[in-house]
Design a protein around this nucleic acid. Structure first.
Lengths: 250, 250
DNA sequence: TTCTAAAATTGGTCAGACCAGCTGGCCAAT
DNA sequence: ATTGGCCAGCTGGTCTGACCAATTTTAGAA
């Protein structure tokens, strides 16, 4: 593994001197306003020209402060209308994706890392979901299972409910950090599944039926509050699903 | 948990339209050049004025493309010198931290999520490390254990080797994605440990001795290639360490 | 050759301008 | 009263040109 620059322990008393640039200071301030709730999702920021006057800086600096926040999905700029605080769900997706997958060539080893990490995250999510799921969580999960059953013959719809099933479990685990991770990694997995399935659409049907049965088992375990059973069920599901999809690749 | 906007399944035939901006296109292109290795860490980008001519756009657009990459730590701008590709470790640290911790708010729920996620990541890392550690990995891990033993009376040094112990295990798991996650989360945990330990420095000594013993057990399990034992040992270590630190908080 | 001071280069910032798209109000036609 | 077109004003996106401070390079002096 490359990934040098290990722990990077800095005992150096001569720290780096970095005078804050104007735009970075504005970034920090805006981030603070968002995290402390002064600016809530959907709120509209003052116009750039207005911010120039408020901060007493040039418009360049304001824009260069807004730009990173926009690129990372924390703000959204709508030309002609204004700049708005993005929905919370979008505020972490892009940086997380960049951080996890960024700078990594899409080679095979990487694919394996992805699948393995996903396995770890989702089995644990199932475990915690079994212990913590609320009534609403259970209802939401059950709804996705029913959706899958209903659309057994519509691969696109089926996959949609399949994905939602996993999302709802991640949500039921009541760990925001875990939810975010699964959300992002699941996105990658989903495209991978799509590629594989496109190779032999005829297989999709039988895979779906197996998958549905496994989802039912997972849900049953979660509903019964049995954390270990939920973990095992999810483990079993992911193992077989991954294996099946890899077989298709051949 | 807030985090609404679940899977965001849009069957709406009237999709959102968004025109691409110039700077975003440049961002994508630059990220591509970095990902595919055309631009390697340490490389110097053409000057902004040069990029203007290459892309045939205004300097504003070039700068607004560079700014997000700089803010996320993928590039570093040195005034008077140029803009450079950051070291690989810097390319995922900051984005990951932003995405995972969404600012840096130290609210309680967040802290629990952090500890729980860390537990999941590290126990799995130990498991895989036991199955995959190379001779070099084992040597590196052992070195950190020896370092801890040597600096039992120097809390700062001890913590440093402690942290490196966990980093080396993460590395030995041979999963780059997992390594990055642990790297970032460990950073947060480390500051948390520091805070707690500062509250009662006298406790540090006895905690260190217990910790060292547990590290030895983890290492032994990894060296023997027993994945389950390694997971249990790491689980035990983290559980007790977390509990002890939380007690200090009182 | 070595040292030093000037010149060129670079990122950071500002100001002013223009464009395309959005918003909201006004008004005529229905 | 509702609809649809129209227009003026505002907003973000982009471009240009300029200045500053820090750095790098160069050229000249020793």
């Amino acid at each position: 593994m490359a990934e040098n620059t290990p722990p990077a322990v800095t005992n150096d008393p001569f720290r780096q001197i970095r005078r804050a640039t104007v735009s970075d200071a504005i970034v920090d301030q805006l981030r603070g306003l968002i995290t402390d709730g002064t600016l809530k999702p959907g709120d509209r920021l003052p116009s750039e020209r207005e911010l120039c006057k408020r901060f007493d800086v040039g418009r360049t600096s304001v824009r260069e402060a807004l730009k990173p926040l926009i690129t990372m999905g924390i703000l959204v700029g709508r030309g002609g209308s204004g700049t708005f605080v993005a929905a919370e769900s979008g505020q972490y997706q892009k940086p997380l994706r960049w951080g996890l997958l960024g700078g990594m060539p899409g080679d095979l080893q990487n694919q394996d890392d992805l699948v393995e990490t996903r396995h770890m995250l989702e089995t644990n999510a199932a475990h915690w979901a079994a212990l913590r799921a609320t009534a609403e969580n259970l209802a939401a999960i059950e709804a996705t299972v029913q959706g899958m059953a209903e659309y057994l013959d519509d691969p696109a719809k089926f996959q949609e409910f399949d994905a939602n099933f996993h999302f709802e479990i991640a949500r039921a685990a009541q760990n925001k950090m875990l939810y975010r991770l699964i959300n992002v990694i699941r996105g990658q997995i989903q495209t991978w599944i799509g590629e594989r399935l496109a190779l032999s659409p005829d297989r999709a049907d039988i895979l779906s039926r197996t998958s549905l049965e496994q989802h039912r088992e997972i849900f049953a375990a979660i509903r019964s509050g049995d954390g270990d059973a939920a973990r095992r069920a999810m483990d079993n599901h992911i193992q077989t699903a991954t294996a099946d999809l890899k077989k298709i690749a051949k």
